[in-house]
């Protein structure tokens, strides 16, 4: 590969997507037909707590009525202080995440500073917008974006619609086919100032309820040791909780639900 140098008036600057277009390395857009079988992503949630934001997502990918994969990851670090989760058409969603991650890092390296959290959300909004022709043919990708805003010292959550509309949420947000059920649980349990532990418990309970009601959302799978991915973004950056931690939280939720049933009977 030669050096990607450009005449000064045509230089793409720190915009990685523009660079791909200029060099002809951008993937070609394709026309999809509705009969084509594709994989769908499912329930992802984000909630604010006193130190930042917790983000989580189940692991199931479906293709029609079949389970296509039991261990898909839907929550990723976008950069050091932000996270992205995806719901929708899996291949396009993963491509979007990969491009978004590179775009943020590329900008940071070229310019020497990070994009602001709001700037990152706007970048993502443009990527969703660019996917609109495919969204019209049911290849929708809906991301959920959150991060720790270093300039303001708070965690922030952004969700999107299929046309790239960007909305900031004050408390929590859910995306995907199981989001209605997850949202009900989050809404019932949300308090303005949550500790990290409480927020994680709430998120885990919401995913449990989503998996309970929605066929396309996977629940905890102790047999194979597959659990939803839970990540925290705070002033120190992005980190995922270990599988053992998440497993223990799910055991708590199940124990609580069992106790409730015993009281009722």
């Amino acid at each position: 590969m030669g050096l990607p140098l450009f005449p000064i008036t045509e230089d793409p600057g720190s915009n990685f997507m523009a660079l791909l277009t200029k060099t002809g390395a951008a993937l070609p857009k394709f026309e999809a037909s509705d009969e084509f079988s594709f994989r769908h992503g499912t329930t992802v949630v984000a909630i604010k707590y006193d130190g930042g934001v917790i983000m989580a997502g189940d692991r199931r990918a479906t293709s029609g009525h079949s389970i296509a994969n039991r261990a898909v990851e839907k929550v990723y670090p976008a950069d050091r202080h932000s996270a992205i989760a995806i719901a929708g058409s899996a291949a396009l969603a993963m491509e979007m995440v990969a491009l978004f991650q590179v775009q943020l890092e590329h900008y940071e390296k070229v310019e020497g500073v990070s994009i602001s959290l709001e700037g990152k959300a706007n970048q993502l909004s443009q990527m969703v917008r660019a996917n609109m022709p495919l969204a019209m043919q049911s290849f929708v990708v809906i991301p959920l974006f959150c991060g720790y805003d270093l300039a303001r010292g708070v965690g922030r959550i952004f969700d999107f619609d299929a046309l790239g509309g960007r909305y900031e949420e004050t408390d929590f947000a859910c995306v995907g086919s199981g989001s209605v059920h997850a949202k009900a649980t989050l809404k019932a349990g949300f308090r303005p100032i949550l500790s990290e532990t409480t927020a994680v418990d709430l998120v885990v309970a919401s995913l449990y309820d989503a998996a309970d009601e929605d066929t396309a959302t996977g629940g905890p799978d102790p047999l194979r040791g597959i659990y939803p991915i839970v990540a925290a973004v705070d002033v120190n950056g992005f980190r995922t909780l270990t599988e053992a931690e998440v497993a223990a939280r799910f055991e708590n939720v199940i124990a609580q639900r069992q106790a409730q049933r015993e009281v009722q009977s």
Partner: peptide
């Protein structure tokens, strides 16, 4: 900058 570009494009491809 050209180096960052080359590396990021190669890493993605």
């Amino acid at each position: 900058v050209a180096g960052v570009r080359q590396a990021d494009m190669k890493g993605l491809a």
